[in-house]
Design a protein around this nucleic acid. Sequence first.
DNA 1: TGGTTAGATGAAGAAAGCTTCAGGTTAGGA
DNA 2: TCCTAACCTGAAGCTTTCTTCATCTAACCA
Lengths: 208, 208
Amino acid sequence: MPSASKAVLQPRKTPVQARSTASVNAILEATIQVLLEVGKERLTTTRVAYRAGVSVGTLYQYFPNKGALLQAALKNHLELVADAVERVCREERGGPPSQMVTRIVDKFLEAKMKDIKTSVALYSVSSDVEGSKIVEKTAARMNKAITCMLATTREPLQKDPQLVASMIQSAMAGVSRKLLESSSPDKQFMPLKQELILMLTAYLDASL
Amino acid sequence: MPSASKAVLQPRKTPVQARSTASVNAILEATIQVLLEVGKERLTTTRVAYRAGVSVGTLYQYFPNKGALLQAALKNHLELVADAVERVCREERGGPPSQMVTRIVDKFLEAKMKDIKTSVALYSVSSDVEGSKIVEKTAARMNKAITCMLATTREPLQKDPQLVASMIQSAMAGVSRKLLESSSPDKQFMPLKQELILMLTAYLDASL
DNA sequence: TGGTTAGATGAAGAAAGCTTCAGGTTAGGA
DNA sequence: TCCTAACCTGAAGCTTTCTTCATCTAACCA
């Protein structure tokens, strides 16, 4: 009896052997695939397991329930985005504000658009109660990173850096959502990205 | 046999007598209430009907299925926001750009925040397949209105006005979402609104 | 090679919710 | 007043999906 249950979100069992790790990965990937194909409403644990090439029982060995499965998939995706942002924020410390903005927008959108459809599919998950907690945590992580970076500008900001960071995040999130929801994201991508950089640069300039 | 079925979203039957109109309204309001209390996952048609003070049968007389019910509620809400934006855009024609931005942000956020919790509850609906179509349509309506308004500036814009309108919408949507998802929307409201206006003003100035 | 643990299986139990429909009630016109 | 159409009711059928668990197989180690 190694451990009690940590409720939702925690895998029931941690993989030890290689094959189980493979199963978990397959299940997670299958989750995204099924989400893309049939949507969250018609996503069933059985279907995911079948797609992953395992049995339902195996799925339930690692995820206590359907919700945990979806949350894990969402978490995976968001962490990739947050990682990208954190990395950029570290790299651009002390640089000129306009470059900060350009690079951060670049990386954020790149991460979001890397697998456009996956992002879209996961939006439906993020509106769950537990899902939005995960979103919030990731947002907080990014906020911290951006705030930190903003503190390294030559001339200090005239306002609360955290507020400024929030605005940057909001604007980026708004645009990426617009892109993802658009019927042809690829066509709008470059113009919107350009405008976003322009907007944020103008904003930062006005905040120094 | 007055009419065939127009599939989803259309009420099955159009109210004729006063009491049925009352039922429909009660059902729609109850939908929001239940959404707030238990969330979309645990919203059941029976529960909505009970809350509305009618029977499930009555509900199904006006809404062909659960999805149509949720969509109707979403549509209601979005149309209020779009109406507010359209009105402002009409009023501010020919005015100075900074005022355009200020007023539009003001009204947009006012409409969104009027019933904060309702907006939040409806986000979970908007990620449905049919739900996002409704969102898209409303966004297109607002885009048209804003584009129209932008065409009346003294100095003409140096860019595609529709692109600029999209950016304004994206930024507003991003911020409102941030507000709605925040744990204390009221505290963040004024600062974020101020910043949003500032950001959009700076952006518009840079686009003239 | 044998024992022990990790991992996999999938039929079936159980729960839950959507939706229908046959029959009752109310409103409004003739 | 009486009749018809509009409206309402809610128990129950039907379907769907989640989740479990007894049992089997594969991997690792002594």
